[in-house]
Amino acid sequence: MKASMRRWDRRHFIVAGAAAALAGLSRAQATRPGDQSAVILVVGDSLSAEYGLKRGEGWVPLMEKRIEQQKIAARVVNASISGDTSSGGRSRLPALLSKHQPTHVVLELGANDALRGLPIQGTEDNLTAMTRAAQAAGAKVLLVGIQVPPNYGSDYTRRFAAMFRTVADKTNAALVPFLLDGVADAPDPAPLFQADRIHPNATAQPRILDNVWPQLRKLL
């Protein structure tokens, strides 16, 4: 009787151990990072908010379509607001991080700061704070740079463009140096812009996405 019980105990121990191992494996498989959908939060201004475009024509919706086509497990939250500044984005970001819990944050702000003649240092401080807040929340950050026309003066234009690199270097964030590369500096940019000559039209949006995509794809 005792020997029989000892054999049963050993068999029970082996079965229980195997079950525990399988349960642990199942939990590990269920929580692998690659199995979970990424959440990409885009915080920008009119350049990302489809200003003057039909819904679905902007580079952010086009990015959603590309993500779907490439079967990437990710969803996009576009929290861009036309006219927003880096200060406005900074004030909105904490609530957005709490609500959406993004794994990736794309920051496209600063153009309206320049249009309003705001100090570059203030814009740099805001973008730095936003980047660090997103990183502290566990998100990877892609900083999207913008450039201003030369009529702002060569010194201001140079320092404004360099600011995005400075923020990226300080925070180890990924960087798209110029959102409108190949658009604003095209040989003949007029056909790529709306009548206001500030906002790119629908024709330009695929090129804008192509400027952002390589750096974002590396982070996904």
Rank of each mutant, 00 (worst) to 15 (best):
A136P: 02
G145Y: 01
S154A: 15
A161C: 11
L143M: 10
L142I: 03
K140M: 03
T123D: 06
F164A: 09
V144C: 10
A134N: 09
T157K: 15
V144S: 01
F164Y: 14
F164I: 05
V141R: 06
G145L: 01
L143F: 02
P150M: 00
R159E: 15
V141I: 09
A161K: 14
A134M: 07
A161S: 14
I146F: 08
G138H: 05
A133K: 11
A134K: 07
D155E: 15
R159P: 00
M130T: 06
Q147A: 13
A162Y: 05
L127S: 09
A139P: 03
T123A: 14
R158A: 14
F164D: 08
Y156H: 08
N126E: 03
A137P: 03
M130R: 08
Q121D: 14
I146H: 04
A161P: 10
F164H: 01
A133F: 00
V144P: 03
P149I: 06
G122A: 13
V141G: 04
A129Q: 09
V148R: 05
Q135A: 03
L142C: 03
K140H: 13
Q121K: 13
V141L: 03
Q147T: 14
L142F: 00
G153W: 08
K140S: 09
A133V: 02
P149R: 11
Q135L: 06
K140A: 07
A137V: 04
A162L: 11
N151C: 08
A136I: 05
D155T: 12
R158L: 14
P150K: 02
M130N: 03
V148Q: 13
T157D: 10
D155Q: 15
T131A: 09
A162F: 09
A136M: 11
R159C: 02
N126W: 06
P149M: 09
P150S: 10
G145M: 01
N126T: 09
F160K: 08
T123V: 07
I146A: 12
P150F: 03
N151E: 05
K140N: 08
F164W: 05
A137F: 00
S154R: 15
I146C: 12
A162C: 02
K140E: 11
G138I: 02
S154V: 11
A137K: 10
G153S: 08
L142T: 01
A161E: 13
N151I: 01
L127W: 09
V148N: 07
A136L: 07
V148F: 06
Y156P: 06
L142D: 01
D125N: 15
R158S: 15
Y152R: 09
G122C: 10
V148K: 02
Y156C: 10
G145E: 04
A136E: 13
F164K: 01
V148H: 07
T157L: 12
M163R: 07
V141P: 00
R158T: 14
A162I: 00
G138S: 10
G122M: 12
V141W: 04
Q121W: 03
Q135G: 06
G138Y: 09
N151K: 13
G153I: 03
G122F: 00
A137I: 01
G153A: 11
Q147H: 12
T131C: 08
G145N: 03
R159F: 03
R132W: 05
G122E: 14
T128W: 08
L143E: 00
Q147G: 07
P150L: 06
G138T: 01
N151T: 05
F160W: 11
P150C: 00
V141H: 01
D125H: 11
Q147C: 04
L143H: 07
R158Q: 15
A139W: 04
L127G: 11
A133C: 01
F160A: 08
